[in-house]
Lab assay of single mutants.
Amino acid sequence: PTIVLKVSPEELKALEKAGVEIEKIEKNEDGELYITLTPEALKKAGFE
C-alpha cells in the first residue's frame, strides 16, 4: 500500500533534503501538493 500525503512546499523541500524517497508529486488545480510514498520510504523516514 502506498501513502498519499498533502504537504506544503516547505515540507516537500524538507522531505527531499532528508532524502525521503518520494514516488510521485502531484499538484491539484488549487495548487495543493500531494506526495505518494512507498512503504519502504516510510520505514526509512521512521514511520511504521
Rank of each mutant, 00 (worst) to 15 (best):
P1W: 15
P1G: 14
P1N: 11
T2S: 13
T2H: 14
T2R: 14
T2Y: 15
T2E: 04
I3N: 03
I3Q: 07
I3R: 12
I3S: 04
I3G: 02
V4Q: 06
V4M: 10
V4P: 02
V4E: 03
L5N: 01
L5G: 00
L5T: 02
L5S: 01
L5V: 05
L5I: 05
L5M: 13
L5A: 02
K6I: 05
K6D: 00
K6Y: 10
K6N: 04
K6T: 04
V7I: 13
V7P: 00
V7N: 00
V7G: 01
V7T: 03
V7A: 02
S8W: 04
S8M: 05
S8F: 03
P9E: 06
P9D: 06
P9R: 14
P9S: 09
P9C: 08
E10A: 13
E10L: 15
E10Y: 14
E10S: 13
E10K: 11
E10D: 12
E10I: 12
E11A: 14
E11M: 15
E11S: 09
L12P: 00
L12H: 02
L12D: 00
K13Q: 10
K13R: 12
K13C: 12
A14L: 15
A14E: 11
A14Y: 14
A14T: 14
A14N: 05
A14H: 12
L15W: 13
L15Y: 13
L15P: 00
L15C: 03
L15R: 00
L15G: 00
E16R: 15
E16L: 14
E16M: 14
E16N: 12
E16G: 06
E16T: 13
K17H: 09
K17S: 11
K17N: 09
K17W: 12
K17Y: 12
K17E: 09
K17Q: 10
K17R: 13
A18G: 08
A18H: 08
A18Q: 11
G19I: 01
G19M: 06
G19E: 06
G19C: 06
G19V: 01
V20W: 04
V20P: 00
E21Y: 09
E21V: 05
I22T: 02
I22V: 06
I22E: 00
I22N: 01
I22K: 00
E23S: 09
K24Y: 08
K24Q: 08
K24T: 06
K24S: 11
K24L: 09
K24G: 06
K24F: 09
I25C: 07
I25G: 01
I25R: 03
I25V: 09
I25M: 07
E26V: 09
E26K: 04
E26F: 14
E26G: 05
K27G: 08
K27P: 07
K27T: 13
K27L: 13
K27I: 12
K27E: 10
K27S: 12
K27M: 11
N28Q: 09
N28Y: 08
N28D: 09
N28P: 02
N28M: 10
E29M: 10
E29P: 09
E29W: 11
E29G: 12
E29Y: 10
D30S: 12
D30W: 14
D30I: 13
D30K: 11
D30Q: 13
G31D: 06
G31N: 07
G31Q: 03
G31Y: 03
G31E: 04
G31R: 02
E32K: 10
E32P: 03
E32V: 12
E32T: 15
E32G: 11
L33R: 01
L33K: 01
L33D: 01
L33H: 04
L33Y: 12
L33N: 02
Y34M: 07
Y34A: 03
Y34S: 05
Y34H: 05
Y34W: 14
I35F: 01
I35C: 03
I35G: 00
I35K: 00
I35W: 00
T36E: 06
T36D: 01
T36Y: 14
T36A: 04
T36K: 04
L37H: 00
L37A: 09
L37G: 01
L37Q: 00
L37M: 10
T38D: 05
T38V: 02
T38A: 04
T38Y: 02
T38H: 05
T38F: 03
T38W: 02
P39F: 15
P39R: 15
P39Q: 14
P39A: 14
P39D: 12
E40A: 10
E40P: 03
E40T: 06
A41K: 02
A41I: 02
A41G: 05
L42W: 15
L42T: 04
L42P: 02
L42A: 15
L42N: 02
K43N: 13
K43Q: 09
K43S: 13
K43F: 08
K43D: 08
K44S: 07
K44H: 06
K44I: 08
K44V: 08
K44F: 05
K44W: 02
K44P: 02
A45E: 03
A45C: 09
G46Y: 04
F47W: 11
F47V: 12
F47L: 15
F47I: 14
F47Q: 08
E48V: 06
E48M: 07
E48T: 06
E48Q: 04
E48P: 15
